[in-house]
């Protein structure tokens, strides 16, 4: 405990304010139902988040796949690479691609569920 600041801080104590009536808070679901500006903002942000997530997922899978024929077609040294007795191409596109897309899909499902839970919490006011 430090010595110079022994004195307690001053605080203000008041009763509840009675002069302003509290407005009952309006559930966001009503805002969405009535298609107000507020409701639209909430909904658009959800749609944008989900679209961005969906497109990222697709890019995560498709971009490496598009790169494969280019890499293997134009860089002969990569073509010669082997994993044990198997050429790299077959290891990647015959086997590893399937667990890889399953993993990306699993990640997507988790993120999409999370986006939706956040949205649900937000609009239900939890």
């Amino acid at each position: 405990m430090s010595k110079p600041e022994q004195r307690p801080k001053r605080v203000v104590i008041t009763g509840p304010r009675r002069d302003v009536r509290r407005r009952p808070s309006r559930p966001v679901t009503d805002e969405i139902d009535d298609q107000t500006r507020v409701g639209q903002v909430y909904l658009r942000s959800l749609i944008r988040a989900q679209l961005l997530l969906g497109l990222s997922t697709v890019a995560l899978v498709v971009v490496p796949l598009i790169a494969m024929p280019l890499l293997f077609g134009f860089v002969p040294r990569i073509r010669e690479l082997q994993v044990g007795p198997m050429p790299l191409w077959w290891v990647l596109l015959g086997i590893l691609v399937y667990p890889a897309i399953l993993g990306v899909g699993w990640w997507y499902v988790r993120q999409a569920d999370r986006n939706e839970s956040q949205f649900t919490d937000l609009v239900e006011g939890r």
């Binding site: 997922t57 899978v61 191409w89 691609v97 897309i101 990306v104 899909g105 997507y108």
Partner: peptide, 17 residues
């Protein structure tokens, strides 16, 4: 190999979009 890969990857797009 693009035939089986394509048949499977189609479901990633279906899932995500």
């Amino acid at each position: 190999v693009w035939f089986p890969v394509g048949y499977a990857v189609g479901y990633v797009l279906l899932l995500a979009l």
